[in-house]
Design a protein around this nucleic acid. Structure first.
Lengths: 344, 344
DNA sequence: CTGTTAGCGCATTCAG
DNA sequence: CTGAATGCGCTAACAG
C-alpha cells in the first residue's frame, strides 16, 4: 500500500521520502547509508531499492549541519609567478584524487586571499587543510596552529608549531645527486637553483636543496658554486657565464629548476658543451618531466603524487583517528638517465 | 543586564548567542548580515558589536540548508597531459579570484572523476559549474543540460544545448595572425598546432584555431600547411622537417602551442634560420608568456583572465538575475613583437 | 523597523 | 534489529 509518493515531482527526494517509500523510518535509511549500526540484509535491500527509485541523494548541507562534518578539505595553492606550475598541478592532482578516495572534496584557496583560511575554517566549510609552498618562517603557521582544524603543510618550516608536515627531502636529494656525480669523478659541481624570488622568501624547498648541495660538497671536498636562475634563456646564459668563468669551472651541473630543462641543452651546446660528453647534468624535478625528455635526465625525482597523497592521508588520520601531528620526509631516489658520465 | 553569555566557551557562537548578547531576535541578526531588509543604524551597530565580541561567524552548512544556496561554484579542470598547465593555471586563478568577489568559493573537480559533476550537483554542494577544456561534441553536455544548476562552458561545442559558453575566438585569432603576416608580404605560412591528442579528441580550441588558419589562407590565397606537434624538441624537429620540405616552404610560422616557445628559436637557429630575418613567427599564447620572452613574440594573446572572469560572471548572472544562457566570444587582438618582419 | 516561528534535511540519542 | 523524537544553526515568511 501507498508506495506511490505524493510529493511534487519537481522537488528532489529527501530522506523521509525514501523512508516512506521503503516503509521504514528515516533513521533506518540514515543507518543504511552510514553503516553506523547493523541493518538486516532485507531492509537494507528495500531501502536501497527505494533510494534508487527516487534517485535519492542526500543534501550535503543538511548532513554537514547534523554531523558537523563537511567532507571538504581546503587546499591552499600558490599562484605566484616564481613557482613551478607543472609541479603545482601534480600536487593538486594528487590531493584531489586522494581526497576522493576518502570521500572528501577539495575547496581551492589561493594564498593571496589572506583571510580565506580563517574564513573557511570558522565557517566550518572544511574539515581540514592542506597547504602548499610553505616558507621557512611562514606567517600563516601561528594562525593555523591556533585553529581547531587539522592542517598539513607541504614543506618544512623552521618551527612547525605542532602542525603536521610532509615534504620531499630536498637536502637529501641534493646530497644524493652530488654523491652520484662525485662517484663519477667530478670534483667541481655547480648548482643552478630556483628563481631569486623563491630564495628571497625562503621557500623551504629552495633553501633546503641549496643547503644540501653545499653540505655535500663540503664533506666530499668538492668545488662548489651555486647560482639562482629565472626560467628563461637570458638568465640561464648569465648563470652559465658565471659558472664557467670560475677558477675551476664545473664539470657537472645540478639543476633544481624545472623551467630550465627545455632550454638547457641548447644553451650548453651554444657554448660547445655537449651533454654528457663535455658536461654532466643531474636534475631535481618531477619524474615525468625528467623522463619525458628525448634524452632522459639523470634525476632525483620529486614524487609529487606521493607527497600529495601523504598530505591528504595525514589530514584524514588526524580527523578520523585523532592521530597526533607528525613530520614526514619522503626519501629521494636517483634514476640514471643519459646526461651524466665519468669526468674527463 | 545579562550581557554575560552563559555558553560553554569551547563552543563556537551561534546566531542566537549573538541575538541574546545584542538583545535582539535572531532574525534581526540574520537580516543585518544579509541586508535583505532595512535595519536601523543603531540596532545594526549593536548587533555588529556583539558579533565582534563573540567572534561570531555563521556556519555555512546551516546557512546553505536554510537558504538552499551553498555559495560554492564547481570548477571542472582538465588534468590531461596534453593540455597546457600554464594556461590552465591562469584560468583557475581567474575563476577563483572572480568567484571571491561574488562571495563564492570554488570546489575543484577533475574531469576524469566522471561522476563528480552529477554528485556535487545532486548533493547541492555547488550553486553552479564552470567547465574547462570542452570538446566539440562533449559527452558531458547533455548531462549538464539536464541538471538544474547553471553551468558555463569555457569552449564552444558544436551544440551547446542551451548552456552558456564563453571562449576566446580562436578562429578569429588565427585569421588575425594570418592577415598580419599576409600584410607583411608572406605568401606561404605554416601552422604549428596543438598536440595530436588534443586534435584527436577535438578540443574546441585546437579545432577552431586550425579552421581559422585554413580559412584565412584560402581567402587570402596563401600557401598553407598545418602540422600537429607535441611540446618537445624531437617532435618539433619533425614538424619543421615537413614544413621546409614542402614545394613552396613557408616564410612565416603561426604557432599555437605554448610549450614550443622556449625551444622554437633554438631549433630554427640550428637550421640557419634567424627570427625574424629568415623567418617570421607569430604565436597564439597567453599574453604574459608571449611578452616574457627575451625577444617578445608577435602574438595574438589568449586573455585567460578575461575568459575566466566572464565565465564566473555568467554563472552568477544566471544565478542571481536568472539571465538566460548566452554565447560569448572574446575578440582577439594582435600585439606586435620582435618576431615578424616583411617577407624576403 | 523588529520579533516569532516554522521549517530546511539529516544524524543521533533514546526507547522499544 | 527498528522507530520516534530532538536538535544542528540559520533563513524567510508571517505578524506585528
Amino acid at each position: 500500500m501507498g508506495g506511490m509518493s505524493n510529493r511534487k515531482a519537481s522537488t528532489a527526494a529527501t530522506i523521509s521520502d525514501v523512508a516512506k517509500e521503503a516503509g521504514v523510518s528515516t533513521s533506518t535509511v540514515s543507518y543504511v547509508m552510514s553503516g553506523n549500526r547493523p541493518i538486516s540484509q532485507e531492509t537494507r535491500d528495500v531501502v536501497e531499492a527505494a533510494m534508487r527509485r527516487l534517485k535519492y541523494s542526500p543534501r550535503s548541507s543538511a548532513r554537514a549541519l547534523a554531523s558537523s562534518r563537511s567532507n571538504v578539505l581546503g587546499l591552499v595553492v600558490p599562484l605566484r609567478a616564481d613557482v613551478n606550475v607543472g609541479v603545482v598541478m601534480q600536487f593538486v592532482t594528487a590531493v584531489v584524487t586522494t581526497a576522493r578516495t576518502h570521500n572528501q572534496d577539495v575547496l581551492l584557496l589561493t594564498q593571496d586571499d589572506a583571510g580565506s583560511i580563517e574564513r573557511v575554517t570558522s565557517q566550518s566549510m572544511v574539515d581540514g587543510l592542506v597547504m602548499m609552498d610553505i616558507e621557512a618562517r611562514d606567517p600563516r603557521i601561528p594562525l593555523l596552529a591556533r585553529l581547531q582544524k587539522p592542517a598539513v603543510l607541504i614543506g618544512m618550516p623552521d618551527d612547525p608549531r605542532g602542525l603536521s608536515c610532509v615534504d620531499f627531502d630536498f637536502a637529501g636529494a641534493s646530497r644524493t645527486a652530488v654523491r652520484h656525480l662525485a662517484e663519477l669523478g667530478h670534483r667541481s659541481i655547480a648548482f643552478i637553483g630556483s628563481p631569486p624570488a623563491s630564495l628571497r622568501r625562503h621557500a623551504t624547498y629552495a633553501d633546503r636543496a641549496l643547503a644540501g648541495f653545499e653540505d655535500a660538497c663540503r664533506s666530499l671536498e668538492i668545488q662548489d658554486l651555486a647560482v639562482a636562475c629565472e626560467a628563461n634563456s637570458k638568465d640561464l646564459a648569465k648563470a652559465l657565464d658565471k659558472i664557467f668563468a670560475a677558477p675551476h669551472p664545473a664539470t657537472a651541473l645540478l639543476v633544481h629548476n624545472e623551467g630550465l630543462l627545455p632550454i638547457l641543452r641548447e644553451n650548453l651546446a651554444a657554448r660547445g658543451l655537449a651533454i654528457p660528453d663535455n658536461i654532466s647534468v643531474a636534475v631535481i624535478a618531477p619524474a615525468d618531466v625528467a623522463a619525458a625528455a628525448v634524452h632522459p635526465w639523470t634525476a632525483v625525482s620529486i614524487p609529487a603524487m606521493d607527497i600529495g597523497r601523504a598530505a591528504v592521508e595525514m589530514v584524514m588520520d588526524r580527523l578520523s583517528l585523532a592521530k597526533p601531528a607528525e613530520l614526514r620526509l619522503i626519501a629521494p631516489t636517483l634514476s640514471e638517465g643519459e646526461t651524466t658520465s665519468p669526468a674527463r
